[in-house]
Design a binder for these strands. Sequence first.
DNA 1: CTGAAAGCGCTTACAG
DNA 2: CTGAAAGCGCTTACAG
Lengths: 341, 341
Amino acid sequence: MKNSRITLKDLAKDLNLSPSTISRALGNHPAISDATKKRVQKMAEELGFTPNSIASSFRKKKTQTIGVIVPRIDIHFHSLVISGIEEFAYNNGYNVTIFQSKDSLKREKEIVKILQNKMVDGVIVCLGIETKTCDHFKKINKLGIPLVFYDRVPTDFDANKIIINDFESAYLATEHLIKSGCKRIGHISGSQTTTIFKARLEGFKAALKKHHIPIEESLILFTNNLSYDEGVKCAEKYLKSDLKPDGIFCANDYTAVSVIQVFRKAEIKIPEDVAIVGFSNYPISKIIEPHLTTINDRAFQMGEAATKLLIRQIEEKDDSITSEIITLKTELIVRESSTRN
Amino acid sequence: MKNSRITLKDLAKDLNLSPSTISRALGNHPAISDATKKRVQKMAEELGFTPNSIASSFRKKKTQTIGVIVPRIDIHFHSLVISGIEEFAYNNGYNVTIFQSKDSLKREKEIVKILQNKMVDGVIVCLGIETKTCDHFKKINKLGIPLVFYDRVPTDFDANKIIINDFESAYLATEHLIKSGCKRIGHISGSQTTTIFKARLEGFKAALKKHHIPIEESLILFTNNLSYDEGVKCAEKYLKSDLKPDGIFCANDYTAVSVIQVFRKAEIKIPEDVAIVGFSNYPISKIIEPHLTTINDRAFQMGEAATKLLIRQIEEKDDSITSEIITLKTELIVRESSTRN
DNA sequence: CTGAAAGCGCTTACAG
DNA sequence: CTGAAAGCGCTTACAG
């Protein structure tokens, strides 16, 4: 509007040089003499010239932008991942444009289209809950735009994926309960259409099997979203059931917290009567009393790893389609909710 | 890389029309006949043509992008605000590029420069903690790019600001304690160099004054970041002090939660012995026992309001520099931590 | 209702 | 070491 921007051309005129030279000088091109570079840099500074990166993106067909699709930004896990993405991207000269799918397949498809048109250099995605097939992402691949999935990843096609080993993490958590002396161990699980919750259930069962502890199906409870309220309901079921658990592995921290609270109200001692382990290391796990033993799911690192892989693929010249699956190591954080003396 | 994109020109050739006509047809220009529009749309569909929005942005000098600078994405308040920004922006055809200043002034300045070069249509900012003056934002204004601040806003220049009334909210919270029968009311405050915490302290004092309750300076404690750990220390100070509070207004929910926990361990009953009120309505406020009375600080709405104002200013033709300050109405959410029968 | 032409601000292959 | 020229893919004022 007001003072229209200064362009390369303006600079060129002022310095009696060609725009080509200016462009190269500012880009630190080796063919340009140091003297010229200095003159150009100085004048650019003086006039407050800053390059129009849209023009540059357009010309180079490279936007230095990463598109990110998450179900919701306000879920702590995703906000941590995004934080990792932004951090790594920023340090490597990329910007991050975020979209929320709101778990809607329709919206996810719309966003994919926008991302193509916007010519992002790469895309990072956590699939929405409605998404069963990933055809809408194949177009992105066909355009040669690298694509990395994290957390909720496609099962129906080869792609770059950053995940944690849910099976192993659950195994670890369950084994920890066993080693703490638990004999009747329950599990609060999520929707079995979601791979990660299925894997956690399987890891749970495998640990029991390994240690010759019978799997009591009645102690395995299922929820839709692992919400706090569903956790309360599960806890009440445990209280009413004939077979009482003395240890519970919860597939996330919310349900673990609700179990702690319901049990304590019922005068059940945590961890003495029942030991509890959660999953995800949410901030609340360090605040709830007793502090919650949980699995560090490496959300921030997931964002970093996704971005690192993505940028590598963006900047690799060779066009061979490769896909990598990176599994991040999780960590069992032992706190009071499972520490028996 | 692979199949290079289809352009307007390609479409034009296929249909024996000029690129101008294709452009207008796809843009639903009134001068184009319906018949032509349909032909063009059909062919575009068939060939899978999608417009290159970088080219369009470059040509129109309009990127449909909003730049957002927050201190950190993984702070729940900001992730809620960003969620509101993304939602409103998406529904109005804008994309959101996010940056974390990490509370570093240097980085904030860098980001501002990137944003200028990226030709974003508008910018939404929550200032970093180091930022005392806003000269680096003035350039953005000079370029005619609308700018909206939220939460931590500049005090040294006129600008669009979305805030809540911290004074009034604190007044409300404190008055609620008074009405619940508290006589010796404490306050845990944040850094006094931050406007909002200063305002909360003042609102607190004003409510006491209004109700003729003496202000006991020894019951007003200061912290640097209102962290959970600092809250624990404050609670311990209260326990050791001669004058014991029977009500505490905490400037955020973390410190309120820590006070609840420390007091309960000391066998102090909440709310019977001491009533507690927090600030921000964090998820934990609904989980901690007793549930925490707090102020809903409208984070999501803040994001929406900021984006709404920003887009209005982007799309307004007239160039007169106006700046608006929008104060969102907060809400006292009364829960058990302050409910005495 | 449609088209020819210019141009947005860069970058880069080619030439010297 | 530097420059002239072409062009990225759109949009739009102008012309008919």
